[in-house]
Design a protein around this nucleic acid. Structure first.
Lengths: 245, 245
DNA sequence: CGCTATCTTGATATGAATCAATAGCTGTGG
DNA sequence: CCACAGCTATTGATTCATATCAAGATAGCG
């Protein structure tokens, strides 16, 4: 049996025992495909599953009644989506596929079973969902207290950091399948203003962008400009219970 | 034995069994006092405890190297602080007491034990920590896509909603022990600008503020202005495992 | 009673939004 | 293979929200 995508993800943080792997794999549902642009779910939907991104890019967004949109988070390969919807039943944001996607599904019901049978996995779920909070803290910091150029720099750097953590490679060219409007909605600026800022940043030889790629030309300067802290730190599993089976 | 403060908090969401209560209470450490203005911990500190606010107000903040500050969250009676620090060892933000406080402490080690012995409590911890994410989503939405007045309105309304959920009372007067600078650092505006906005909002008969109280004079208008959604929804415990003992 | 925090208010500067028009791509169908 | 439709990006002119700088005014506190 090849590892399920959930297992692959969890195993990145912890060496799962064969029993644990089996438990997770047996509860997982068939992966599902979503075409670019489709909606995995909408704000307010009643959620019954936790998702893991297997392939592709998605984004959490929320629309204000004015029609404005705020992009809250990006989700890449390996990310867990929907933990807060599990706890509170209705989704606090919509999830949209930014590229074609393949997604693994884990039913809410199964989560209860897993918590009982495999406390160590429960601890792992708990920890993984904390990454979400940490990421949100960083976005907040950036939005609240910095100006446009720094916000964009921050966005690019944090996407790069997360993608590099997944790929293990350190490439200055990152693929960001977002339009200028998307970028604006993520950092709280207008598309027009994003355009001007990107031009300026290009002139200043900080970045380069075309279509769906961004190149971090002068990464040290970007880091300074954004006052970026790469918060990626290893999971602390010292308090985890020992595995069963 | 009177219920520990952690038990009181958890019991608000779930009817704990006597065994569960006992388990939590026995692991809890002595409560601790903190005077107003003191720091419960600093960004980057190595955390070994989860805290529950018993009395008082605290805030999570983060300082940028420029000296600017972003307030990320407020913590009231009953709130759990430090979940993300438990998962990742170092705190992603500092916690400052905004008033005198009494805080209950739950050691990280005990969390592992609890996860093993009481899966239902594990599920509860998991869910409670999701509230943090949901709160952060809302702050982010407000910061990214609305103007000053709406941000302030949003802040006041969300504080009111949370305090009312705790107190069970629906009072238009809420105690907010924050200066104008604090408010500014929470919503991403200058103290000076906060001052002007509050004056305007007072003239428009939306609110009243003096010292440490804010009165929501015209709550319907505020809700409309802020496009506020009270996301407080009951915990969905349908997937929780059944209790042990 | 004076000290230090906090708050108030004005004048000015600046970042970003808005409005508006044009230019480039990309994919589709004839 | 071209022409057109429909996004996406570029650019300018103008307005608006918010920051900055600066100077008092208040008020709680030791």
């Amino acid at each position: 049996m090849s590892d399920s995508c959930f297992v692959v993800r969890l195993n990145r943080y912890l060496d799962l025992t064969p029993t644990e792997k089996k438990a997770v794999a047996s509860l997982e549902r068939e992966p599902r495909d979503y075409p670019s642009g489709s909606m995995l779910w909408q704000e307010g939907d009643d959620l019954s599953e936790l998702l893991i991104v297997h392939q592709g890019w998605a984004l959490s967004e929320s629309r204000l009644p004015t029609g404005k949109r705020q992009i809250l988070r990006f989700h890449f390969s390996g990310d867990m989506i929907g933990a807060s919807g599990i706890a509170f039943r209705d989704a606090p944001s919509s999830i949209v596929a930014a590229t074609d996607m393949v997604v693994c599904r884990f039913p809410r019901r199964a989560l209860g079973e897993t918590f009982t049978e495999h406390p160590r996995l429960a601890a792992l779920f708990f920890s993984i969902s904390q990454m979400e909070s940490i990421d949100l803290y960083d976005r907040l910091r950036a939005l609240g207290r910095s100006e446009g150029k720094a916000r964009l720099a921050n966005l690019f750097l944090s996407i790069a950091a997360r993608m590099r953590a997944v790929s293990g490679q350190h490439n200055p060219v990152i693929r960001i399948p977002l339009t200028q409007s998307d970028l604006g909605d993520a950092v709280g600026l207008t598309q027009v203003h994003v355009n001007r800022l990107i031009r300026q940043m290009t002139e200043e030889k900080l970045i380069t962008r075309n279509r769906s790629t961004v190149t971090l030309v002068d990464e040290p300067k970007l880091i300074e400009l954004a006052r970026f802290v790469d918060r990626f730190s290893a999971l602390d599993s010292s308090w985890f219970p020992s595995p069963r089976g």
